[in-house]
Nucleic acid binder design. Structure first.
Lengths: 238, 238
DNA sequence: ACAAAAGTGTTCCGGTTACACCCATGA
DNA sequence: TCATGGGTGTAACCGGAACACTTTTGT
């Protein structure tokens, strides 16, 4: 065996997006403990020897939120040989996994979560939402992963518009959907035309319920009907 | 260290597409040798201990074709624990790498090549084009990888139309481009309208040269101007 | 002359865009 | 009564789809 072939550990890191009440994209970060210090990072784990990566990501998401069957999407393998050469990172891995790890490859996943959903982590003591533009410096190449995940979530919504509803409450107004879509697609759309278009889709179902306590005409709540959507599969933008 | 974390080799496999003169998508496959028997497979390699995956894929492509700087795109990590449990596959790995490998994770890449380009492999004795619909049973999960690569190449062209020209000769007719596009996008487009649209793009440059020896009106040759394209970046389909 | 494909022109249609206008509600 | 946003209507516009027509070349 040529000694210069990689023989390594492989991990999974998950970027979980949420959409807050101030119309900002957020991501979930967890706390890691190094000596007595705390540092935040992306949730992740080494994969098990009998696990597929998708299963591993599903496990990480469950350990993170307590939710089973979250939508998820693998988007990139990060394998820069120097992605884990920071001393603190190596030290943390030594402590966390009780073994010296000199190089580590990670497979990054995207996931989506309603921001009001109760987070019930079975693994982490501290799990918090961070607005995407307020994410501090993170260990390893986690900042890079997050940056690329933003490109990926936009692409994902182009491919499958329906996943956008994973970020909204079950009942939502068209304005909420508009603001989420705007936060993701960045190109301007007239809200009136957006409204007309969205409400013309048969998988956007109007409810007999409107907003309360708003200082203007109350907006109607709608829900997303996934079954109808699957039959038609209309893209928002052709 | 918990013993149930994966500690493994990581490889790269490349699906290289070409477009033949009968308007079929082809892929490059190589021969592997097991005992005295030959078997064809996707080109690939374990990654080196100081290599990033992208670099590794670039190296595999160079060893395969002799071409430097081929376009490439990582598209998925395949890590099913049972993707390498076939006895022949294990035996082959034992011989190829002189070491027993019980599990292997691979990162799959897409690449594109003009089918008339000379193939000058520095590693493989036998490298051949296979029409996509005539690919035989391959070892590991290579058939699965190829299947998913087809979905991916279509997506890639949606995102960046210009990469389609990697599959065409430098001089091409609009009909050639039409047939390639049809092979990839599968939805019918009227060739007249396609012609009109394509020739309206300023990055599709008409040449002072037309077909010869055709039994109908000779078509004009065009070339693709990447610089102009980069400035405008028009998508074929909005 | 005919076949086959290049290349151009024209019409039609549907969806997007840009608004104007009215409605409902709280302050 | 005013400000704010909900919700509807309409007309202009633009790009794609369909297809007719002319051109060019080999057989």
């Amino acid at each position: 065996m040529s000694p210069n072939f990689i023989h390594t550990y492989v991990s999974v890191d998950c970027v979980v997006f949420g959409f807050d009440h101030e119309n900002r994209l957020n991501i979930l970060l967890v706390e890691r403990h190094l000596d007595e210090a705390k540092q935040i990072k992306l949730p992740g784990s080494l994969i098990y020897s009998d696990e597929d990566v998708d299963d591993s990501a599903e496990r990480v998401l469950y350990e993170l939120t307590g939710i089973k069957k979250m939508v998820l999407k693998q988007f990139k393998c990060f394998a820069d040989p120097s992605r884990a050469i920071n001393k603190d990172d190596i030290k943390w891995m030594d402590e966390e996994y009780k073994h010296h790890i000199d190089r580590i490859i990670t497979v990054a996943y995207l996931s989506l979560c309603k921001i009001d959903h109760k987070i019930n982590s079975t693994k982490y003591n501290t799990v918090n939402w961070f607005p995407i533009h307020e994410v501090p410096n993170l260990p390893f190449d986690h900042n890079k992963i997050i940056k690329e995940s933003l490109v990926e979530i936009r692409r994902w919504i182009e491919i499958d518009f329906s996943i956008i509803f994973e970020l909204l409450p079950k009942k939502f107004t068209i304005r909420q959907l508009y603001q989420l879509y705007s936060a993701l697609s960045e190109k301007y759309i007239d809200i009136k035309n957006f409204h007309k278009k969205i409400s013309s889709f048969n998988y956007i179902v109007p409810l007999n319920e409107i907003e309360t306590n708003v200082s203007h005409r109350a907006a109607r709540y709608y829900k997303f009907d996934a079954k109808v959507y699957k039959k038609n599969n209309t893209k928002l933008i052709k």
